[in-house]
Design a protein around this nucleic acid. Structure first.
Lengths: 185, 185
DNA sequence: TTGTTAAACCAACAACTGTCGTTAATACAA
DNA sequence: TTGTATTAACGACAGTTGTTGGTTTAACAA
């Protein structure tokens, strides 16, 4: 769903791409709340009104960008799995860790507005992947379990990304047993 | 910590109280993103600049208000516990459910900015309570477990509050076993 | 190629934001 | 009670936001 190559007017694809790029480069310099829509439009050489043709505000831009990127990462990683629940969970944990680590290293300290958005997109992307995996295994109450597991993993990965005292694999080793038990009681 | 009766200048307490009240009454009428700082200052009969003397923006006001209220609720509920991990968890689950249910009924549909803030304050408040409880029981890696459990419960409670297909007690019954297993492997 | 459609540009708007410097009022201690 | 320090009130400021109406330009199908 929501494929990028969705037979979209090339102008639209180009404009969105330019907005993403401009935003990305600004994030390397300033924190999110210091970036204005004017900044983004200037950096992208687009008109400010054009920005509003595509996104209601800068929050939506962030949300869309993060969601798209994490969704792509999850899709790529999950393709490497062998279909078992255990490897699927491990792949998801590692994907979350890598993504959050990259985010927090690529941008300087981001604040109140930024992190919650990243969190919610990570949770959402992981939850979707989980629901697919759980439906195949006939788990009961898959939506609720998917929610709990995706939230728990996201929380753990976020805490890990802040501390960075161990490797991502070690975190996966540490939390995989408990998350598995939630899925297969 | 961060007690309200913190030997604060009565003017400051009064002003904060008035801001909370004004904000609260506005939330009953508009969604969060339609409320301006000007609205809040007018409703509270305070000067707009006075608002900024107390909070950097309306997000901080929301955060502070939600955090204070949920913290108070958790403290009150936890006092009823018998010290066992199981009842502590059940009390936390019910507290989250009641709080989220009240929030979503007291305010009309709130959007992108509002929910993430509520979420994060609920997670945070629950995590603090959990860390206290887990330290008493000598669980290993209490911070990580507290994070995972608080996130999982918050996710489940939030999903429950949106659907409202069962009672809060039924949700607690459904998720208590798995959350307990995370804490006591 | 031409005509239609839709996107991007542009200028200008009222409103809100966040900050400053100054003045007036209040809390509190001597 | 008086003096001092803190805090609220106020007016003004430049900058940002989100929207609108009208123009130009590019995509795409006939």
């Amino acid at each position: 769903m929501t494929f990028e190559a969705q037979k979209l007017d090339p102008r639209v694809r180009r404009t969105r791409q330019m907005l993403f790029q401009a935003f990305q480069s600004l994030l390397a310099e300033k924190t999110f709340d210091l970036i204005t829509v004017l900044d983004i439009s200037e950096r992208s050489t687009l008109n400010r009104a054009t920005f509003y043709d595509h996104f209601p505000d800068k929050f939506a831009l962030l949300e869309s960008m993060i969601g798209e990127r994490f969704g792509a990462l999850v899709a790529a990683r999950m393709a490497q799995g062998d279909g078992t629940c255990e490897t699927a969970l491990r792949l998801l944990i590692l994907a979350a860790c890598d993504f959050l680590a990259e985010i927090s290293s690529g941008c300087q300290k981001n604040q109140r507005q930024f992190e919650p958005m990243v969190e919610s997109q990570v949770k959402e992307g992981m939850r979707e992947a989980l629901i697919l995996a759980l439906h195949n295994h006939g788990t009961e109450n898959p939506e609720l379990k998917a929610t709990m597991v995706s939230w728990a993993i996201t929380g753990a990965a976020l805490q890990w990304s802040r501390e960075r005292k161990t490797s991502a694999d070690q975190l996966a080793d540490a939390i995989l047993p408990t998350t598995l038990k939630v899925v297969h009681p």
